[in-house]
Design a protein around this nucleic acid. Structure first.
Lengths: 182, 182
DNA sequence: GAGCGTATGTCAGGATGCTGACATGGTGCA
DNA sequence: TGCACCATGTCAGCATCCTGACATACGCTC
């Protein structure tokens, strides 16, 4: 009854880890020419889709802690890719926005990342991609609906995929803008 | 033509990252009572399935560099969970094996991880799990069949799911994954 | 046998991310 | 009003992992 992991090659978790590692490596390699790390790109992408996000919100969206995101923000700000409000208009949250240079960098980076993602899913059908996406979201939901996982600076307490944190833009349909090239 | 990422909530890559982060967090939380990190558990699990693996082989299996695995091995060896041959029977590779304590720790850890994985996939059907697994493997294969990604200490150059390193494999599971179109 | 390429183990340094902690600003409640 | 509570920004310390480098051991070719 007490189940163990069994053959790793049959483990969904192992495959998930493997896929995430491969994706990260590919993104890293693709973004390196731009001088961007995956974390930095994630930050830019989030800001591009939702200008004015605070550091803590960005951290949740990128699955890192506030502290890590803080360091990322410092680097990007120093490079002139984003601006942070000097004073908090309300509360302590400092809204962050991309600069023109930041938007330009994001455009290049986003193209690269989209190509990587397209390459990753090239052997799947369009329906297969949606199915995989839905399965992954279901896994996230199943793991996050656990009492023990909530609270604190836990990065996994991130914005879940169809929720409030990114409300402004949810116009796209199931077959988003980047589907079915070819 | 030039595709960008589009809405993050529709991105398979984003969902993959999210799922991997959630899984890692859940595993971390589950393993903490045992005093094991995810990397340490991965190492034990690999050794349990394939005694005598070298550090470099373990590194590939756990998607980290040899150097990182080296540090993990030192820690586990110091805790008496594994033994490394003092001299290389052939080449430079030092075969590594679990001690009795290591096997005991692995049994506990494996149970915990299996429970996490089971929880993660609880909303999927058995066929859905296999499908997800197959899709993930397909993604890994698609990313790794790129010339630019090969070589060096790259952790993503790991043992792919149907290869020599874990001989007991049978990745094409019995339920017939119809989802690998090619 | 000498030379080359590759794989491995190992050390040193640095980048990244996390935990812990503290101060500040907002909110809810007695 | 006062106070507990929570979210945020930020600093300090530590763990993990990576890149770079070097030495060693094997297989291959000449």
């Amino acid at each position: 009854m007490v189940q163990e992991v069994g053959d790793l090659n049959l483990s969904v978790g192992y495959a998930l880890k493997q896929a995430a590692a491969a994706l990260r490596t590919a993104m890293d390699a693709g973004l390196r020419p731009l001088g961007l790390s995956v974390s930095q790109y994630s930050c830019l992408e989030l800001l591009g889709q939702r200008p004015g996000l605070s550091a803590a919100e960005l951290a949740r969206g990128a699955f890192v802690t506030r502290q890590s995101m803080h360091a990322v923000l410092l680097g990007l700000e120093e490079r002139g890719l984003l601006e942070r409000a000097a004073t908090a208009p309300q509360g302590r949250a400092l809204p962050t926005q991309l600069t023109a240079a930041g938007r330009a960098a994001l455009t290049s980076a986003s193209r690269i990342v989209a190509a990587v993602e397209q390459r990753m899913t090239q052997t799947l059908t369009a329906g297969g991609r949606d199915r995989l996406h839905a399965d992954l979201i279901a896994c996230v939901a199943a793991l996050s609906t656990d009492p023990a996982e909530a609270g604190g600076d836990n990065p996994s307490a991130a914005l879940d995929a169809n929720q409030s944190a990114l409300p402004s833009d949810n116009p796209a349909s199931a077959l988003g803008p980047d589907s079915s090239p070819e």
